[in-house]
Design a protein around this nucleic acid. Sequence first.
RNA 1: UCCUCGGUAGCUCAAUGGUAGAGCAUUCGGCUGUUAACCGAAGGGUUGUAGGUUCGAAUCCUACCCGGGGAGCCA
Length: 436
Amino acid sequence: MSLAHVRIADIAQHDGQTVTLAGWLYNLRKSGKICFPILRDGSGIIQCVAVKANLPEETFEALKNLTQESSVKITGKVRAEQRATGGFELDVESCEILQRVPEETPYPITPKDHGIDFLMDHRHLWLRSRRQFAIGKVRHEVIKATRDYFDENGFTLVDCPIFTPAACEGTTTLFEVDYFEDEKVYLTQSGQLYNEANAMAFGKVYCFGPTFRAEKSKTRRHLTEFWMVEPEMAYATLEDVKELAEGLVCFIVQRVLANRRTELAILERDVSKLEAITGPFPRISYDEAVKILQRKGSEIEWGSDFGGTDETLLAEEFDRPVLVEKYPAQVKAFYFQPDSERPELALGVDMLAPEGYGEIIGGGQRIHDYDLLLKRIEEHHLPKEAFDWYLDLRRFGSVPHAGFGMGIERCVAWMCGLEHIRETIAYPRMLYRTRP
RNA sequence: UCCUCGGUAGCUCAAUGGUAGAGCAUUCGGCUGUUAACCGAAGGGUUGUAGGUUCGAAUCCUACCCGGGGAGCCA
């Protein structure tokens, strides 16, 4: 693709040349007979220099009176400049204003402080700011790395439906869709059941898409709509899942460190924390986790699941993600394969990110025996008819299989070192926020 | 859903029962190296909504609405 204009990100290749940049006015500083329009173009930010003596009167006046976020094409000469943050400046020769933001309705997001409510109301504009831009780039890198990792390791992308007739876990956390005749349909909360079918067809598969949870969760690590990548492998066990999860996370961290240093710097991320993320990750059992938590003062009892505080307490024991495995079957979903030595345990594993970012991965080995799966469906009072096709997978060449799900937003929040998950997605959907 | 804090100028905040104010933004003026530029001036208010207490309410009380933080919930 070639464009008539140069991207700011590529400006170093054009030192000394006259180029045209197409972007938006990020900020403007002026001082009588010289002014400094700061231009943003979606690839980077550069300071332009307009000197009154070197320009036609109307060009200088137009630039000097430009308003924030007006769209403008600026032509000028690229010059290496020690004083500039990006290392280059543009000496303005001419400009073309596409749309000038009127003074009466100025751009609402000024370079000064704003509260979160105001910023969220203006999310469609907030995305233009430097920090949100950096987060968006890291998110893109995380997703690209995730896809590359699976693609390069023999996985096939087979996406799963978003409208689903049956619940994985009961219906209380599902969004009901009132449209289809004859049956109730819900927005998916996981592609896993379909993934299992796909794995029997393709061997190793993954799906990647939005998932929906109707949980009344109001915390810094929950979204109502979030994106999840879910691999599933035939002829695989809990051990394979742990290995795959560790490999994926290391790969993502390396990619982000390799390609997004600039963005991490904008976010003031302590990169040494990410540089420490190398395999092997510590692996502990649920039993050991409970002992650690009790020693640290948690009131957790064996048999219950970890709360957010427990996850943080546990994670702070380690400087890299920790894998916690073999949970009591009672806290896990119906489809987990039981441990052969201790059937009260489920062959599930969670990966807890360091620095309090919580569970980023959850998965495990699935039940492959028909009779056991049917028993579990009945024990959980799930409608057997809805799982007929799922049970088919245990009738026709059933094999041990395993997989996991990774929440993209939690992973991005961790990479970026964010306080709140709401900044990791362009338009977050939360309990009390659905606009813009 | 519960606990907790908050809602005052476009934005971020101050005013602790007695004349509603500052910084930024906007407008006008000044400045040839600014880095959230700076200096001077101007305009800008039904203090979330409704009711109550009081001589007098942004301030105290009640209800509701909206939001922040936390909890619970949560492959």
